[in-house]
Amino acid sequence: MSDSADGAASRAHHDLVAQPHERDDEGPIADAEAEAERMRSDERPLGRLGRPLDRRSPFFVGMAGAAGVAVTYVLAQLVLGTRDVLVLIGLAFFLAVGLEPAVSWLARHAWPRAAAVATVLATLVAVFVGFLVMAITPLVDQATQFASRAPEYLTELTSKGSWVSELDERFDLRDRVQKLLSTNQDTLMNGILGAGRMVFGVLTNTVIVLILTAYFLGYLPAIRRTMYRFVPSSRRPRAILIGDQMFARIGGYVLGNVLISLIAGGVTFIWLIVFGIPYALLLAIAVMILDLIPAVGATIAAVVVSLIALTVSLPVGIATAIFFIVYQTVENYLLAPKIMGRVVQVPDVVTVAAVLIGGTLLGVVGAIVAIPLAAAVLLLFREILFPRLDRA
């Protein structure tokens, strides 16, 4: 090997790898290192791409097929084994995309992106903490009141002539309940511990989702660029147009759905206070949360609140049911079109089907994200699949 080639090979060998560098023992590797040094430049410190492999080679076809099967199997096992974690990651990314319009709006008005992300997340955390304070405090107070009046309720229920005492005399309910409690203490204790673990798990998952959402929001521009890098350069402009439109639809749906749910909770709270329906704050919060679930959430909330309103009086219960019917009509035909506009563009039948499928697969989370995902899929169909089928 010449002195110049020897010097090039020395420069190509990384200073932090396999030292000391014994060039005399490397043979053909030293020649490759010299060539590596010649092909390196300031613009491309790792060299240019080499010639593509011959994809028609039998060896390449066989290896590609075997690798495809192996990778598919490993990915399937990975998805099944990490399903819960992937759901949290997907939910966090969904929330980040949903909050991105607010961050971008602040960034367009001369806010640094870091400050915009921090402001949006601080608002989200404040709303979440405020919800916990509003929900937990009344719940504890009402539970304390119920516990203090429990003996009075028990006396009234078991007094002679009540329907509970008649059932007790006919079916011997008291002895059956005592026997059930005495023989299933371990089961009851496991149930209580299980409920405690569930609450702890929900709080932990909520914190994880908030942290992941913060990371996704902060790095969303970089994530967006990386996603588009996977698209061939000839198709990249079209992919950017379609991809950004999908992100905008998801973001518009999330923010619009949250705003409509806040309005539903506020209007319900005012109605409950005016008519003296008990547990007004808790019921309003429940309506706000259930209204986030498309198609079925508002109906469930209306039924629950109307049943509780019946405890005040029959006219109040009927009036509450009518109130929800009127409000849902206003929400569906006035508020939703005004707030969301034409962001989603999903037919009603697709909405119901998407909610049912999403709820079956991922529960409440699946039902919430089903409609914007369906909107994204329909956009792909309209812009890519249908035109190609029309030309076929």
Results as ranks from 00 to 15, higher is better:
299 T>H: 07
78 L>W: 08
48 R>V: 10
256 G>E: 06
221 P>A: 10
123 T>P: 00
307 L>Y: 10
341 G>H: 08
260 I>Y: 00
326 V>A: 15
151 P>R: 07
133 V>S: 08
371 I>L: 08
75 L>T: 10
93 F>V: 12
331 E>D: 14
187 T>N: 01
219 Y>M: 11
232 P>E: 11
265 G>L: 05
83 R>Q: 13
314 L>H: 03
289 I>K: 01
206 T>E: 04
100 E>Y: 05
291 D>L: 01
353 A>E: 00
361 L>C: 03
117 V>S: 13
95 L>T: 04
320 T>F: 02
173 L>W: 01
117 V>L: 12
9 A>W: 01
193 L>K: 03
335 L>M: 10
205 N>F: 03
1 M>F: 09
21 H>L: 15
110 A>R: 15
88 L>V: 11
244 D>Q: 15
6 D>N: 11
297 G>C: 12
51 R>M: 13
136 I>K: 00
224 R>H: 14
197 R>K: 14
304 V>S: 02
326 V>K: 02
163 W>T: 13
297 G>P: 09
354 A>I: 14
103 V>Q: 06
313 S>L: 12
79 V>D: 05
385 L>C: 04
159 S>A: 15
212 L>P: 02
163 W>C: 02
320 T>R: 00
229 R>F: 03
223 I>G: 08
11 R>G: 01
241 L>V: 13
58 P>G: 05
92 A>D: 11
68 G>P: 04
349 V>N: 12
315 P>H: 02
76 A>F: 10
13 H>T: 02
389 L>N: 06
33 E>D: 13
95 L>W: 13
274 V>A: 14
264 A>G: 08
84 D>A: 12
209 V>C: 07
365 V>P: 00
201 G>W: 05
213 T>N: 07
116 A>G: 07
43 E>V: 13
77 Q>T: 11
339 I>R: 00
40 R>D: 05
179 K>T: 13
279 Y>Q: 05
33 E>C: 01
192 I>K: 02
261 S>M: 04
367 A>I: 06
327 Y>E: 06
334 L>A: 13
350 V>T: 07
30 A>G: 11
84 D>K: 08
93 F>Q: 06
2 S>K: 09
180 L>C: 06
128 F>S: 15
235 R>A: 15
227 M>N: 05
78 L>Q: 05
308 I>T: 06
222 A>N: 08
189 M>G: 06
211 I>R: 01
66 A>G: 15
86 L>H: 01
231 V>Q: 06
289 I>H: 00
253 Y>V: 04
257 N>S: 15
140 V>Q: 09
82 T>M: 12
331 E>S: 11
340 M>A: 14
272 L>T: 07
322 I>K: 06
279 Y>F: 14
158 T>S: 11
307 L>I: 15
164 V>G: 05
354 A>P: 10
73 Y>G: 14
79 V>T: 10
67 A>L: 14
192 I>D: 03
180 L>G: 09
384 I>D: 13
27 G>N: 10
218 G>S: 10
270 I>V: 15
221 P>C: 11
203 L>W: 08
345 Q>R: 08
